[in-house]
Amino acid sequence: MTYLITQTLNGLFSAALLFLIASGLTLAFGVMKIVNIAHGSFYMLGVYIAYTVILRTQSLLLGAAAAIVVVSALGFVMQRFFLRRFGNDPLAQMMMTMGFALLFRDATLMIWGGDPFTLQYPGWLRGSMEAGDVVFPYYRLFVIVVAALVGVALWAINEKTLLGARLRATVDDPEMASAMGINVTLLSGLVFAAGAGLAAFGGVMGGPILGGYAGLDFDLLPLAFVVVIVGGMGSLKGAFVGSLVVGMIDNYGKALVPELSYFTLFAPMILVLALKPTGLYGRA
């Protein structure tokens, strides 16, 4: 029972990180139909930028802020100058993001070197919560809470604000939304930038546990893709449910059959694809 609770809490932690990464990926896909191979790189860049800032300021908050600002700006520039011109060609866009993923990967190696590290975090988050036999680090709990808050905020923006209404209209039918006076190009840029920023934030949140290392970008990318495929591309709710499913399965898979941990991810994907090719909450 103790084991079960601990593993479930760990699964929740994975799910929280996955949600931060996948929500941006799925929103960008919803608005632009773009498959962003560089999304894992945004996460990785987030970790590394935060690392530099935290080394100088000792503040996780400042690190997170810097990571979000820089990576969002990077995402905005990428979308504006390189992706927008291939609006109707998802393959060209995918190749473009692939090129950027490789650039980011090598640039990271060049700037920060290949040594792995973990991020420092504030003292008040150290230590563990103990309830009976269950021991769970405060920091992981903190990440779960933060991700939940982000989820609520995203939901509120999406459902309750004018910006969200425009966003939903654009996901449904970009042409019609454009005809109704919504600036779809600007909105696409903003969504892409926000997605990049969310991934970077995910990187900072995961940094104290998963750390930063060479190859981190492509380690996380398939997980984020599986979340988006399972949940349904373009759906925030799908990203939420998908993260929970994938986080749990990935965590239990790693604990029970470590050799086949990638394989256990396969199961939910096949199942969902067989029953509902567009994902749980996706639209055809």
């Binding site: 896909f29 139909k33 498959v35 998802p90 393959l91 995918m94 492509f218 990318l221 398939p222 893709f225 599986v226 988006v228 495929i229 591309m233 990638y262 394989f263 991810l265 396969f266 994907m269 694809l273 090719p277 567009t278």
Partner: peptide, 15 residues
């Protein structure tokens, strides 16, 4: 089809 095929083959390749 299309981008869905792309993402699924990517995921399977990674598996």
């Amino acid at each position: 089809r299309d981008v869905y095929f792309l993402m699924i083959t990517l995921a399977i390749g990674m598996v």
